[in-house]
Each structure stands twice: as structure tokens, then as C-alpha cells.
Design a protein around this nucleic acid. Structure first.
Lengths: 201, 201
DNA sequence: CTACTCACATAACTATAGTGAAGATTTGAG
DNA sequence: CTCAAATCTTCACTATAGTTATGTGAGTAG
């Protein structure tokens, strides 16, 4: 086989269409609207609304936006409860680069997200730090708990000013509320895994 | 004019398409993917992905689902930041009925949502309570702060067992953490506005 | 029972989303 | 600079989303 396979099976589209349709219909009924009324305020035809509600049409982006508008809900509401099936794995080839997200002081370091892009849950990064790299100018302080494991190279992690020199295979765990920064004061690139668990709501 | 107007202007679809396209492209780039790779794992053609990214096509529901799958994000991610423009008003004719959401002890009472269907923010309900209606069997206790205003009729609100008899025009405010219930021990239907402000995250 | 209304479904048509292949652009090595 | 490989866009076609108009079936009045 020549093609690399996808991370998981593709979504079963027909079922998705049915569930979205059911949502539209129940929301419309909740609001005491008829097909005619909803089509009037959305600018869509009764026919297509009826078909969508019964899972017999595949609404376009703009149609979804118009329906959401008519029902006064965020468009994303149509999609809740159907992404739990998303893969827990992030392939190396599909890691998200966080370069633009992180602070400028991070400089040449490469940050890649290791956790699926969910909101509010645990988050892991793959971090490659070049020799001399130093984040002491902008110590991090936020909520949650952190863990770091060194894959290769060495790195000095500072918690509240106290230095912990880590080598390959070492790890460190601490509260994110402690001001923390790190520095690669060695000759080789340091590659580490960094995990942050934000506190639950 | 014969038709009742919509609550707000319909969304400007062309702009939405552009913003969604930009999101797809930046997410793909973040992951270091080419059009060919994304089309491969989504099962879509390069052509349509290119067109969508440039805002020149109106992707269908299933196409959006496939793209989200390929990027390993929830589909709703495509829509964040574009629903702030939603109307703050909920027309009487478009109120959402919460009947099925509330507890069975609520019985014949009618609950209708008065706030736009956002998550996690303040929420208001219109509540119609028939004579004799009583929720004391299942007192409510949750987080946040509550406020209730009586539009017509009378109602007895109990906070931690203490009775407050409210009449038309009266209002009451309390912490939702206090176990609370209410009873319409009068002859007429009571109509009230109830507001709950969940504590911010 | 018949005529009328309201809510929804179906049918025939047309506009466009999506495909596959070929063309244009960019990138990088020598 | 030139050539080649990789990446992206354009083109001609087909499958289908969405429209207008008509049909069905349940209720209600006369």
C-alpha cells in the first residue's frame, strides 16, 4: 500500500446529517416555529429546511450559518456531541506548530502540540531548545500543574529562582503558579516533553 | 409590509467563507501539511480544499466534517469568533421552550428561555406556574446568583425553608447555593421572570 | 360530507459544490 | 541562470444542494 492511512476512520456522514437534522427540528419545535416561519427568517426554502431536518440533504456552510441565525444559536451548537470520536493520537507528521502562539522570548525554540486540540483539558508540547536559549526574561506563571521530561540533551529549569539541572531521562513536576523559566546552557540541542494540566473548572 | 422581520440582519456569507478558509489554511500550515496531504487524509480533492481555503467555495456539512477530522479539531472550531454578532434579543415568538430540560417535578409549569443561547453566561427564563404547582419535592441547589421578578399572580419562594410570599411586582435575589424551591398556593396562574448568573470561570 | 386552512413532503428544474487532470507558480539545488 | 521537483491554481465535467411550485394529510368550520 502506497498511501499512509488516516489517523482514524472517517466520520459516517449519513449519521451526522441525521443528527444535525434532528437538532434543527427539535430546536425549531422548542421555539414553536413552523417550517414556514423558519424558512421566512432564514431566507431558505421550506423544502430544503424540511430535507435537512430529515437528514436528506447535506447543508452548505452558508445554509448552516443561516439556520443558526434563525434559531439564534452559535453554529457550533450543531456539532456538539459528535467529536468525542476524534482520535486521541497526534501523529508526528500532523503536530501543530505553536511557534506563533508563544512569546517572542522563546526565540528559536520549536514548540509542537502533542495533544489533540481540545479546549480546557491537559495539553502537551514537544519542545526543541537550541544551545544558549533562555526564557528567564519572561518567566511563566499561570494556573494548573506542569510536568517536563527530557528526551535528549540537558536543560536548567528554574522554579522561583531555584535551579534544577535536568539531563536526558530526568523529569520535573511543579505547580504552574510558581514563576518558572528555563535555559539551555549546554552545547547540544535539548528536546523535551512538557505537559500542562489546567485546573478543572 | 406583511412579513415580520428577522431579529437581525442575516450573516454576510462571503466574509464568513473567507474567514473559515483562512482558518483552514493556517491550521494546515501549522501542521506542516500540503494541500496534497490534507486532501489525502480527508478524502477530498486538492482543488476543493484550495478553493475553500481561498473563500471561493461554500463547503457542505460533510466536507466541513472531513476537514475537521483531517486537522484533528472539533468542527465547531471553524465557527468560533463569528457569533458575537448574534442578536442580544430573544423575540417572544422565538423563545425556546425548556419543558423537556427541567425536572419532572416541575409538572405543568412552562419554562421559556429569555437569553440568547450562549454558554456559561447569564440566563433568564420566563416561567408560568399553574395554581397548586409546587417544587418543594426537589429543591434546587447550584452555583451562582439568582433573581426573580413576579409579572402577575402570586408565588411563595422558599430559601432554606424560609417562606417569602411574593406578589405582582415583587422581586427576590439570593445565592443559588441556598436550597430553594417555590409553590403557587393561590388561585391564579403566576408568571415570573427568573434570572440565573452562574459564577464566572 | 364538503370546503378551507395549516403544516409538511415531494417533484422537476437550475445553480453550484466537488472531481480529476492539466497548467501555473514557487522553491531550491547545481 | 536554468532546470526540476514540489506545491498550488485553473479548467471542463458531474453530482447534488437549493428553489419554485405542486401535492398530501390532518384538522376545523359551515
Amino acid at each position: 500500500m502506497t498511501t499512509e492511512t488516516s489517523t482514524t476512520a472517517p466520520p459516517a456522514t449519513s449519521e451526522l446529517l441525521a443528527t444535525v437534522g434532528n437538532k434543527v427540528r427539535s430546536m425549531r419545535k422548542d421555539r414553536g416555529m413552523t417550517l414556514a416561519r423558519l424558512s421566512e427568517i432564514t431566507g431558505l426554502s421550506q423544502a430544503i429546511v424540511s430535507q435537512i431536518e430529515r437528514g436528506m440533504a447535506n447543508p452548505s456552510f452558508t445554509t448552516l450559518a443561516q439556520l443558526a441565525h434563525g434559531l439564534d444559536i452559535p453554529v457550533g451548537r450543531f456539532f456538539i456531541g459528535q467529536d468525542q470520536s476524534r482520535s486521541p493520537v497526534v501523529r508526528r507528521s500532523a503536530r501543530r506548530n505553536l511557534q506563533n502562539v508563544t512569546r517572542e522570548s522563546v526565540g528559536e525554540a520549536i514548540h509542537e502540540l502533542l495533544t489533540p486540540d481540545r479546549d480546557g483539558t491537559i495539553e502537551a508540547q514537544w519542545i526543541s531548545t537550541p544551545p544558549g536559549h533562555d526564557t528567564s526574561a519572561t518567566p511563566f506563571t499561570h494556573s494548573g500543574e506542569e510536568f517536563c521530561y527530557i528526551i535528549s540533551g540537558r536543560k536548567d529549569v528554574y522554579l522561583d529562582g531555584v535551579c534544577y539541572s535536568l539531563e536526558e531521562g530526568d523529569s520535573i513536576t511543579y505547580s504552574s503558579e510558581i514563576p518558572h523559566w528555563y535555559k539551555n546552557s549546554y552545547e547540544e540541542v535539548c528536546v523535551a516533553i512538557w505537559v500542562n494540566a489546567p485546573h478543572a473548572l
